[in-house]
Design a binder for these strands. Sequence first.
DNA 1: GCGACGTTTCGTTGACGGCCGCAATATCGG
DNA 2: CCGATATTGCGGCCGTCAACGAAACGTCGC
Lengths: 222, 222
Amino acid sequence: MVDSAALAGFAGLLADQTRAAMCLALLNGKPWTMGQLAKHAGVAPSTASAHLTLLVAGGMLADEHKGRHRYLRLADRKMAGLLEDILSHIDSVEPKAAMARARTCYDHIGGELGVAISDAMLRQKLIVDSGFALTKDGLAWLEQVGVDVAALQATRRTLARPCLDWTERRFHLAGAAGAALCRTAFDSGWIERTKSERALRLTPAGTAAFAGLLGVTPESLS
Amino acid sequence: MVDSAALAGFAGLLADQTRAAMCLALLNGKPWTMGQLAKHAGVAPSTASAHLTLLVAGGMLADEHKGRHRYLRLADRKMAGLLEDILSHIDSVEPKAAMARARTCYDHIGGELGVAISDAMLRQKLIVDSGFALTKDGLAWLEQVGVDVAALQATRRTLARPCLDWTERRFHLAGAAGAALCRTAFDSGWIERTKSERALRLTPAGTAAFAGLLGVTPESLS
DNA sequence: GCGACGTTTCGTTGACGGCCGCAATATCGG
DNA sequence: CCGATATTGCGGCCGTCAACGAAACGTCGC
C-alpha cells in the first residue's frame, strides 16, 4: 500500500509552478543545464538550483555534473510516460477532437502520430528500414505532399533519419524531411498546437489527409 | 507557461497529505461521507470540508448532496485510473535512492530486502519452509544477531510467521522475530528510513552485516 | 416544533515554502 | 595564474495555506 505521505510528497514535486515548468521543459527528452532551466522558468539560478535538487532527490529528474555544467533530464522513460499521462488527463477536460497523443519533437512530429506516420511510410516503402533514408517513391511522395525536396537537398542537414521517441520507444521520422513534413502539416491545417504549446491536435482535415496519403486510419492511432 | 500552471494546480490537489489520504480512501470506488473522510484523514470536519471542496472544484472528486450527508467519490473511472497509474509509478520510484527496494511492512522488513533475508534464512535452515517456524539454528542465529530470544518467547505473540509481500508476491519473515530483527537492524545502523518514512535504505554497514550473517549479497537485491 | 446530527462558513493562528541577493566554490579559456 | 562563467549555500523577507473552534445552517426523527 502506498501511503498518503508518499503520494503527497510525489505530487508536491509537481505542485509548484516553477518545478512544473522545468519538468515540462525536459519532456522533449534532451538534457538542459541548470542555467537554461532557471531562465526558462523565470527564476534566479539559486532558486532553480534548490528546486532541481528537490526534483532529483524525489526521483523525478536525474542530473549529471560535467565540468561547470549540471545537466538535467527526466529520470527515465517511465517518468516521462507518467508525466504525459497526467498532462493528457488534464488536457482531456477540453474538447477531445485530438484522437492521438501527438506532439512535436523539436521540429518534427513525434508521439503516436509520428510513429504511425513513419510506420505507414515504411509499409509503403517511402523510407527504408535501416536509417530511414528516403526511397525514390519517398521523394516523389514528399513532392506530392507539397514539400520542396530540391530545397531540402540543398542544405547540409541530413535529409531523413530516425528519432527515438521517449514514450513510444519507437522510431519516427526526423531530419530535414521530418521537419519539412511537420511544417507542411501545420501550413495545411492538418495539425495544430494546443494551448500547451507542446501537444498537437490532429484536425479532421489532417485525419483525411493522412488517410489519403498514407492509409493511416484513426484506429491505428489509438 | 500556461501549461505549467495547470499541471501545478492539478498536482497541488494531491500535494497535501490530508487530501491525498482522502483520494486514496476513495480508490475503493465506494462513496464516503464528509464525516467519514474527515475522521479517516484525522482532521476536523471543517478542515475536511474545505479540502473536499477544493478537490471537487479541481475535478478530482464528484460530490452529491443527499439529505444531510455529502457523498464523495472519484470524479470518474479515468481519474481512478490516473491515480492508480501514479501510485504504481511511485512504488517503482520511491526506493530509487536506495540500493534495494526495501520497506517496512508494519513492524518488520518487507520488500525485496525482506524477501532476500527470508530466502537466505530458508537456505541456511534457520526457518522451516512451512510456517516459517524458527529452527534451533535459527534461534541461535537470532541470539548471535543480538536479539533477546527469551524475551520474545515470553510474549504471547507468534514468534515467527510468513507475511505475503504486496509487490513481490513472495513471503518474508514476520511475527515477533521479524519485528525484533527489524528493530535490531535499525539499532545497529544496518537500515535507515528515507524521508518518505516508508522506504528503507540499506546502509554499507547493513550490506556487510547481512553478507556476513546470511551470505546476502547486494547483487541478490537487484 | 424540537432536539440531534451532519455540514458549512468565518476568523484567527502558526508554520511551511518560494523567492531573492550576496558570497563562496568550481571549472573553463587564455 | 587570472578573469569569466556556472553553480551552490546562506539569511531573511513575505505570501500562502492548513489547521482549529465557534457559530450558523439544513435535515432527519420523534
